[in-house]
């Protein structure tokens, strides 16, 4: 007798999400738990971690932001291989403003997010007219080339970089700015992508012709998505500049491009939650594997391949499915 796996939405999911007739504590808990618990964990985690792991948590938040930025682009049909471009641009913007003009980090960080994002958007503007792999190719090579340009021209400190930059007044402040940014980005962009605006962005990815045929200028929407994503990445870079009190060529390094993609692939694309989950898995893992040195990047590479081929939906969607649906084996008729 042939059987097939049948997946059915749990009654509680339908009641709590589609009808909003939350009639019992159980239902309200079912609806709220996946939202409230992670937020509580994000907020409370720094309080229980030691100094070393607090630093790790900072990079988790930074990579989560970069991964979210990547996910915004990929949901709008742009596959970036160069998150380091956004990260590095933000880092250099805030570093330069602070080093040469002595502007306070409270100003340099927001300025760097906007200006850095704008510079990246303008650089990538011409590629938006093309479909397919061009965006990936160009985003991959621009940060690597910028690294060489800085090395060769010795601008902004050259290979030495700019060090001794100002820090934020307290480590708790920098911690909670990043955590707040991560939470805001996670829920804010989730909301954005399910709104009608987000529908247009995903529409461009699936069928740009149809979107154009609605009298919508797809380039303008792509530019907006690109700016949002690069500003998020630039913000992460600017924060890190002031945490490490240093900016230099390494901000354009491949690590900042690869780890976010790996995080999204492991966590699951298209939900932002997957991006954050992936960062929470991969960044501590890579700390734990620090002893392995260069082998870590080999692992990232392997992770990318394994998840892309074997589990393209990622861990988050797997968990989400288990949470909201039950499975049973049903007989196939005839």
């Amino acid at each position: 007798m042939k059987k097939r796996k049948e997946r059915i939405d749990r009654g509680i999911k339908v009641r709590s999400e589609d009808i909003f007739a939350l009639s019992s504590w159980r239902e309200m808990l079912y609806f709220a738990a996946p939202r409230v618990i992670p937020v509580a964990v994000f907020i409370l985690l720094p309080l229980v971690l030691g100094d070393y792991w607090q630093r790790v948590y900072l990079s988790v938040a930074v990579f989560a932001l970069l991964a979210i930025s990547w996910d915004i682009l990929s949901q709008s049909g742009m596959i970036s291989l160069g998150q380091a471009l956004f990260f590095g641009m933000g880092a250099y913007c805030s570093g330069v403003l602070n080093h040469y003009f002595g502007i306070s980090p409270f100003l340099t960080i927001p300025i760097a997010a906007v200006v850095g994002g704008a510079i990246c958007t303008v650089m990538l503007l011409p590629v938006l007219r093309l479909r397919g792999v061009y965006f990936s190719m160009v985003t991959l090579i621009i940060p690597l080339m910028l690294e060489r340009v800085i090395e060769a021209t010795k601008i902004f400190g050259g290979t030495e970089g700019l060090s001794g930059l100002d820090v934020l007044p307290s480590k708790w402040l920098e911690m909670y700015i990043l955590v707040a940014a991560m939470i805001a980005a996670l829920f804010g962009f989730r909301r954005m992508m399910t709104s009608d605006y987000g529908l247009v962005l995903t529409g461009i990815k699936d069928n740009d012709r149809s979107v154009m045929n609605a009298g919508i200028n797809i380039y303008w929407f792509k530019i907006q998505a690109l700016f949002i994503a690069s500003a998020v990445g630039a913000f992460a870079g600017a924060m890190m500049t002031h945490v490490y009190r240093f900016v230099g060529m390494p901000v354009f390094a491949l690590d900042y491009s690869i780890l976010p993609i790996a995080a999204v692939m492991v966590g699951g694309p298209g939900s932002f939650a997957g991006a954050v989950l992936g960062a929470f898995i991969l960044v501590p893992l890579s700390e734990a594997l620090r002893a392995l040195g260069g082998l870590r990047i080999v692992f990232y590479g392997v992770f990318l391949v394994v998840f892309v081929v074997g589990m393209p939906e990622g861990i988050f969607h797997f968990i989400a499915r288990k949470y909201s649906q039950f499975e049973r084996w049903a007989e196939v008729d005839k």
Partner: peptide, 16 residues
């Protein structure tokens, strides 16, 4: 957009 309900498919032209 196959994964969307029919009426959600109308959103994009209505966003014009």
């Amino acid at each position: 957009f196959y994964q969307l309900p029919a009426f959600k498919n109308m959103i994009i032209p209505l966003y014009s």
